[in-house]
Design a protein around this nucleic acid. Sequence first.
DNA 1: AGATTTAATCAGGTATACCTGATTATATTT
DNA 2: AAATATAATCAGGTATACCTGATTAAATCT
Lengths: 170, 170
Amino acid sequence: MTDLVNQGKTAGKIIEFEMLQNIAEDDNKHESDYKMLFQGQGKILLALIDSDNLSQKELVERIDMTPQSTAEFVRKLEKRGLVTRKKSSSDKRVTVVSLTDKGRLEIQKRTRSIPEYLRVLDDEELEQFNKILDKINNQMYLDIKEADPSLQNRYHQFMLNHVLNKVHPD
Amino acid sequence: MTDLVNQGKTAGKIIEFEMLQNIAEDDNKHESDYKMLFQGQGKILLALIDSDNLSQKELVERIDMTPQSTAEFVRKLEKRGLVTRKKSSSDKRVTVVSLTDKGRLEIQKRTRSIPEYLRVLDDEELEQFNKILDKINNQMYLDIKEADPSLQNRYHQFMLNHVLNKVHPD
DNA sequence: AGATTTAATCAGGTATACCTGATTATATTT
DNA sequence: AAATATAATCAGGTATACCTGATTAAATCT
């Protein structure tokens, strides 16, 4: 039963960690809104760094949202200057969405930047942390797949690929 | 410079971890909406487990929100049956907000529950993880204080106490 | 007792993330 | 060429988290 006590302690520290990230964000406002990465406009940006110039239809498939919501978020991103929308010449029904440089920078700021707090860990701790996160994440993939097998084909897998391989290349 | 590479890897895994938590939540919807813990209604609940029967005025101080927003969230929580509101008899201007049993359970579900994914870590890893989280969290406290010294007196400290000492007692 | 301060509410607004149903315009089928 | 399917948009809605300004009611001060 010592197990449960230790797990409980860790669980508390994880909540604390998330709380602190939240507070730190309030501070530098829009700079690093990690909450927004996995919903709405953020989801679209993430889909686009994975593969650019997608039609809204393709976005919808990857992102697991209605075409209407997707269109709305794309428009908002366009207004913010993070993506462009142009009609495809081969099929004038489709709208191709592309990242602007500003958009690319925006996501990189959010996903590629190394949080300051990691600097307090030494090499050994960093390695331990990596291993632990790998274990946890793998378990979560399994849990998610088990809970809803259809999820595995959706935006998750591509985000995974993105986060693991592209944003942080070795 | 190997440092930066390792830190980058870890940063990616943290984003992945957060993404996975998000997805897992979508699945069991309202069950464990960790995003909602540190804003709006969640913030109020958190303030109330720390110390119950607060006036809205006291809530406002702890929670760093306008009285109007606070009142709004309290009303919503009342509608959901998570808190009660009664006028103080000593000062009929003040409204005392108290957690109901349902409300208490609600936050415990969100803060006390041990995430399933922790079960994959063995004793040693759990200990390492605890140490790492301590180091990171402490650093974040320092960073936050540095960025805005006024924050230290607000809801953060009490949440810290709560998360560390009360929700997960040894 | 009258003036002022205080706790809270009312009224109304903004922004974000979503959704459903109906419609338009272009492609593809038949 | 007419019918159908497809990509996207329009219109309108819900819910959440916030906010400002104005007002009410009770308490305290002078």
